[in-house]
């Protein structure tokens, strides 16, 4: 039981309301106060099951905006919920797939975004299943201290998997930007960029420190060169992504968008780690 003063019965009744309101049909961002209650619930009770049940039983699949908002809620829950959320999410992949298959289309253009979002979330879950040592936001400074190993082979594979996830974030964010409607209110679409900025930066910082550690530990600089090339390419993509985000007032009001340097950080010298936003 939580050390906070809580009333379980009341919280569970409210949770249903919170989920309902977070996934309402209005074309806005899912209200953070409702998303927050879902996240806090998982920490208070070390369980995400009532949240998943709530999401599954809401009639959201017939409406594209509701489905999209539900996926944003899921993404934030995976990132910031109690670690048990990631474990319990593996049993929910069927429902996530259903979200991608039954796209109700009212002509607002969310269909392709929903498909892309579900496949991103499924990849993220696959990653976490293979690498359970990571949390939902990749909030670690040092790979070596995280894994307590220095096996370059395993490190190589982990980096490759992280880079694949990073590439998926990049194509998804491009799709979101391409779906913006000129004069219209894009708040709902932009709100999906918030967890993507956070996640991509967590991955970026992690890959940076991990590649540095690996360069310190191996003499095989040649063997590492494909990774360095891919790292540099991702740096430039990410830099552009953050630059475009920095022009969205709604988004910069909510989070600090990181600003990456012109050139990728040097991986061979142990220079300064990139700043945390």
């Amino acid at each position: 039981t939580p050390t906070r003063p809580v009333d379980k019965e009341k919280t569970e009744t409210e949770l249903t309301q919170n989920i309902k309101k977070a996934t309402s049909a209005e074309e806005t961002a899912p209200k953070q106060k409702h998303v927050r209650k879902c996240i806090v619930y998982t920490w208070d009770y070390h369980s995400s099951l009532p949240v998943w049940n709530g999401l599954r039983t809401q009639p959201i699949l017939a409406d594209e905006v509701q489905t999209f908002k539900a996926l944003i809620v899921v993404h934030k829950l995976l990132q910031e919920g109690h670690p048990v959320t990631l474990k319990e999410a593996h049993a929910q992949t069927g429902w996530v797939e259903t979200c991608g298959r039954t796209v109700g289309d009212a002509g607002k253009g969310y269909g392709s975004l929903i498909k892309a979002y579900t496949s991103f979330i499924l990849s993220k879950l696959r990653f976490h299943r293979h690498h359970p040592e990571f949390n939902g936001l990749f909030e670690y400074e040092e790979y070596i201290s995280l894994k307590n190993i220095d096996d370059p082979n395993e490190g190589y594979e982990t980096i490759t998997d992280l880079m694949t996830l990073q590439d998926q974030i990049d194509s998804f964010q491009k799709l979101i930007f391409a779906a913006f409607r000129g004069s219209a209110n894009n708040e709902c679409r932009i709100s999906a960029l918030v967890p993507l900025v956070k996640e991509s930066f967590g991955i970026y910082k992690f890959i940076t420190s991990m590649l540095r550690a690996m360069h310190r530990r191996t003499d095989a600089e040649d063997a590492m060169s494909p990774l360095r090339e891919r790292y540099n390419a991702q740096h430039f993509n990410l830099r552009r992504f953050y630059y475009e985000c920095s022009n969205l007032k709604y988004l910069t009001g909510l989070i600090n968008v990181p600003k990456l340097g012109q050139e990728p950080p040097n991986l061979i010298d142990s220079g300064e780690a990139p700043e945390i936003p």
């Binding site: 939580p2 050390t3 106060k33 910031e80 109690h82 909510l254």
Partner: peptide, 17 residues
């Protein structure tokens, strides 16, 4: 000790609107 334990209460206010 209490707020380290319940850090998520503060952490989730980072997107308070």
């Amino acid at each position: 000790i209490y707020f380290k334990d319940n850090i998520y209460i503060v952490k989730t206010l980072k997107e308070f609107v």
